[in-house]
Structure formats: C-alpha cells, structure tokens
Simulated scan of single mutants.
Amino acid sequence: MRITVTVDDPTGDFQGKLLALLAEHAPQVEVDATWTIERAARYYRELPTRARDIVRLAAVQDGLVEASELRTNGDASLRGHSGALKRVLERGVRQGWWPDGMTPPIEPQGPGFGKVKGYLMPLHLVDIFSTAIDNIEK
C-alpha cells in the first residue's frame, strides 16, 4: 500500500503530531526526498539575489558555474554564497517545505578552506530547476 499525504500550511500542533506519528513508524515510512519543480521553485524564490544567480546559471549551463562568472565589478570574493544555499535548504526542512534528507541541489567546488572554484548542480536536477526558474521568471 502506498499513501501520499500533502498538507499545505499545517498548524504547528498538527505538524508536530503528524511528524511524531511518522517517527513512531519510521521503519515502514518512505520519505520522498526528491527535488520536484515545486520544491525547486520554492528553494529558488527563498534565495538571496546573489545565490539565485548561481542556481539560475547552473540551470542554464548544464550544471556548472565557474567562479570567474560570479566575480563582477572587481569583486574577487565569493564569500557568503555557500552559506545562503545551505540556509535555505535547512529552513525548508524547519518550515516543512520538504523533508529532512534532501540533497543540496548545488554545491561549491574547490580545494577547500573557503576557496571556491565554482558551483555544480547534478545533471539530473538541471531540467527540474530550469523549468522551475522559467515558471517564476516568465
């Protein structure tokens, strides 16, 4: 048996009880942690402008955004981009927009220590995010 439940704007009390029930039966519950056009649109709308640029460019460039494309007006720093991408993903879990365990739709690429050479969106998400962004920016 497969049961799909969608609750738009649940109250805090209801959401807490539902999540507790699901946790109680966790071994039998399969959580849908896939990116859909609706989830991608929500993620994109919640991002600050600079982070939106990264996601939009990745969606139109087969997933890859080079750091040099993001450095504009002499600004050599990409500080803060990754944090915004992560915070929206975490906020989505807290707000119930998507379940815990969603994979980040885009990740920084680089040697580490805060240095970013670019951002990469998995190829299977490019069309999903491209469609979501097109729907928003019509």
Rank of each mutant, 00 (worst) to 15 (best):
V5M: 13
V7I: 15
D8H: 11
P10M: 07
P10K: 06
T11L: 08
T11E: 05
D13I: 15
D13E: 13
F14M: 06
Q15S: 14
Q15M: 12
G16P: 07
K17A: 14
K17L: 15
L18I: 11
A20H: 04
L22E: 00
A23G: 06
E24F: 15
E24V: 08
A26P: 05
W35C: 01
T36N: 06
T36S: 14
E38Q: 08
Y43W: 05
Y43F: 15
Y43Q: 00
Y43L: 03
E46S: 12
E46T: 04
L47C: 04
R50Q: 04
R50D: 07
D53T: 13
D53A: 10
I54K: 01
V55F: 09
R56K: 14
A58Y: 14
A58D: 08
D62V: 05
D62R: 11
A67L: 08
R71Q: 13
D75H: 11
D75A: 13
A76R: 14
H81D: 03
A84I: 07
A84Q: 09
L85T: 02
V88Q: 01
L89H: 07
E90Q: 12
G96W: 10
G101V: 10
G101W: 13
P104I: 03
E107H: 09
Q109V: 13
Q109Y: 09
G110F: 13
P111Q: 02
P111I: 05
G114V: 06
K115E: 04
V116R: 05
V116H: 07
K117G: 07
K117I: 00
G118K: 00
M121C: 08
P122W: 06
L125Q: 01
I128C: 12
I128F: 11
I128W: 07
F129L: 02
